[in-house]
Nucleic acid binder design. Sequence first.
DNA 1: CATCCTATATGTATCGTTACACAAATGTCA
DNA 2: TGACATTTGTGTAACGATACATATAGGATG
Lengths: 347, 347
Amino acid sequence: MRKSFSSRVTLAQVADRAGVSTMTASYTFSRPERVSAASREKVLAAARALGYGGPDPSARSLRRGSAGALGVILGEHLTYAFDDPQARAFLAGVADVCAEQGHAMTILPVVDAGADVARVRAAAVDGYILWTTEDGAPVLDAAIATHRPVVVHGGPAAAGARLVGIDNRAAARAIGQVVFAGATLPAVVSFPLTSARRAQVVAGPDPHGVTFPVTRERLLGLQDAARDVGARWSEVLVAVCSTNDAREGHTMTADLMSRTPRPDALATMSDELASGAVAALDAVGLRMPRDVALTGWDDAEVAHRLGITTVAQSMREQGAACARQILTGTTSDFSDRWQIIRRGSSN
Amino acid sequence: MRKSFSSRVTLAQVADRAGVSTMTASYTFSRPERVSAASREKVLAAARALGYGGPDPSARSLRRGSAGALGVILGEHLTYAFDDPQARAFLAGVADVCAEQGHAMTILPVVDAGADVARVRAAAVDGYILWTTEDGAPVLDAAIATHRPVVVHGGPAAAGARLVGIDNRAAARAIGQVVFAGATLPAVVSFPLTSARRAQVVAGPDPHGVTFPVTRERLLGLQDAARDVGARWSEVLVAVCSTNDAREGHTMTADLMSRTPRPDALATMSDELASGAVAALDAVGLRMPRDVALTGWDDAEVAHRLGITTVAQSMREQGAACARQILTGTTSDFSDRWQIIRRGSSN
DNA sequence: CATCCTATATGTATCGTTACACAAATGTCA
DNA sequence: TGACATTTGTGTAACGATACATATAGGATG
């Protein structure tokens, strides 16, 4: 805060003391090879003597026109965002590329719409990456309005923003066909449908009412799959979880399994939810896939351990791709970068 | 990157178009109440027409002398840092205060010493918070050298940096006395001792050789406690885990329990390690506290669930305190903000 | 009606750095 | 030796915004 002490040492002072021009001092820090070893030494000695802390980042950013940081906007409060292993993997990917490109990663906390928009505008970053963005989120427009590059993971699509992510609808349809095959009554264990995040079991909800794009696409794909296997969507029970964790998956699956008629195929939207679902089935003595077929999503470590069929995708690579898109302009298409891993939990 | 398009709209252009002075335009964005409603409207209209994205953050930072962001330096690669629930709680606390104070949170990825130092110097932040810093870490010196405020969580202490954290040695001694009471052969399940992170079981290691301050203090406290209950430290087995997770706690505890003589009291450095330890005891049919007394640390949700005695502290509050220290200058002392929660796992 | 105060508008001078263009010094090669 | 390339050093002019001090108009007050 009181960064500007009475005495802030500047490059000019260092140059003065070293007996060289300001530019020589500047080059010493930003392009050392441009300066003779002798001058370099003089400048560094002067810097040391004066306690110069290196070129001021704000001044440098202003002059250079690049902030040296990437903004990441998470759709939820950090407390929850970081609880999601996929979010963590994604961030790790972003961080990898940031580090590689010598950039910092600025996380813009999301709290309430008004302040969030202000923070987005005020952030000194070279571009924005959005994770888990709801349709019509004001932060997305705010990010685009800054004229800096914007990459949205998963959606929503927007003019002026690039989209990174797999084709969730196609993947959902594919895994839906696997898990629903031969089932009498398919069911779904889903992420929240809207930011209200109400946990509930609903029959055949209209996917178009879902405001989280990834969830909507997956639901659409599962609807396709239900049709493919001849099931009526209006009878398909969707257990909507309020958060993406095993506990919630357990609770909601337990609810689902207590219904009559009981679903005999469960497509879950994540391996975390799936792991809770497996526990819930266990608890009531149902076996996979004999009594109930079940699939996860993400191919997390837990899917491997529990032996469940799942959709593999690499969030880490997608995070890296988002960052690379902004920092180097490299585009990459992930729509087909998913794969169904078959294990024992489905037929 | 190519932030400076051919045509970047500036405040001056907006002012021109609105027919007011640059300052009036500036005030419209930074102190709207300082400007009449009429001018404000004119300026906003002009901004809209020109597609002005708001005041440039770098320029504003330079002029105002504050970057509007807080730097957080994690001692490890993000992939691992975020896997630690305590780290996540800490970050959530930092984020809370950042949001409250209208600041962003910049995470400085740690990869290799050389580049890290450069990144620290180049980061546009108003201060640094360091988490899990090893003795003599170059980033600490680099942070201090910038003359911006620095807060270190847990240690190491350094001139020019404030320290936030509980008195780990006192807390460790206290819980050590609880778990070691009446034991014949105490043992410890520990965090890594150095950045080499080698997993191993060692008898009575010298705590002074430990380079992670928090771990060192806790080991010192446990050494004190061992002495207090009349045990010989040189015989105390310390299972050093390579990471802080349940799996590692399980593995190392299993190793510990296969030794002869078998330890009958286990002080673990986290509830994650403790939960792995509980599983390992289960696996070989040992009961708590009858066969082996066991304690955790942190009072995480898992400690509650497993009913283990633990040291309660709030990382979230500590994170908030670190941020507040930098952003508002508020200091707070956490040395006594810990508490032993007794549950069934110890006597 | 003169005086003083408040609300609003503006001109100027930086904030600290680096891009650019050019000058000077040195080296290279036939 | 002269012509030409290469290194190294420097002056100047921004980058885009805001703090501060001052100017002006209109209102309130006695």
